[in-house]
Amino acid sequence: MSNPWPHELSLGDLYFSPVIPAVVLGFVLAGITALLLNRLKLTRWLYAPSYLFLAIWALWILLIDRLWIHF
């Protein structure tokens, strides 16, 4: 029985891990989230907003992995 979830993505003859688009999309979504937090002036209450950006990025990657890629 074959696994219905993708193990690798192909672009022509090039195969790459499905984690790569998840990381890129997570970075874009974390950037949008950070812009929203800056616009709402919520980052002034934080000690280290750069660490929060990394945490949001990791959360977006986990969410994309859980809901879209299904390893």
Rank of each mutant, 00 (worst) to 15 (best):
M1A: 11
M1E: 09
S2T: 09
N3V: 02
N3K: 09
P4K: 09
P4L: 15
P4G: 11
W5Q: 10
P6R: 10
H7N: 14
E8Y: 13
E8M: 06
L9H: 07
L9D: 04
S10Y: 11
L11G: 09
L11Q: 11
G12I: 00
G12A: 01
D13C: 04
L14C: 13
F16I: 03
F16P: 10
S17R: 11
S17V: 01
S17T: 12
P18C: 03
P18L: 03
V19C: 05
V19S: 12
V19W: 08
P21R: 01
A22N: 00
V23F: 06
V23P: 00
L25F: 05
L25M: 10
L25W: 03
F27M: 10
V28Q: 02
V28S: 02
L29Q: 03
G31A: 08
I32N: 06
T33V: 04
A34V: 11
A34E: 09
A34F: 15
L35N: 09
L35S: 07
L37C: 05
N38P: 00
L40R: 08
L40A: 10
L40F: 08
L40D: 03
L40S: 07
K41N: 14
L42M: 11
L42A: 07
R44W: 05
R44A: 14
R44S: 13
W45P: 00
W45L: 13
A48N: 11
A48Y: 08
A48G: 02
A48F: 10
P49H: 06
P49G: 02
Y51D: 08
Y51I: 14
Y51V: 12
F53Q: 01
F53K: 00
L54V: 09
L54G: 08
A55F: 10
A55W: 01
I56A: 14
I56Q: 07
W57E: 03
W60C: 03
W60Q: 06
I61V: 15
L62C: 09
I64V: 12
D65C: 14
D65R: 12
R66Y: 14
R66D: 13
L67G: 10
I69K: 04
I69E: 06
I69M: 11
H70I: 13
H70A: 15
F71V: 13
F71I: 14
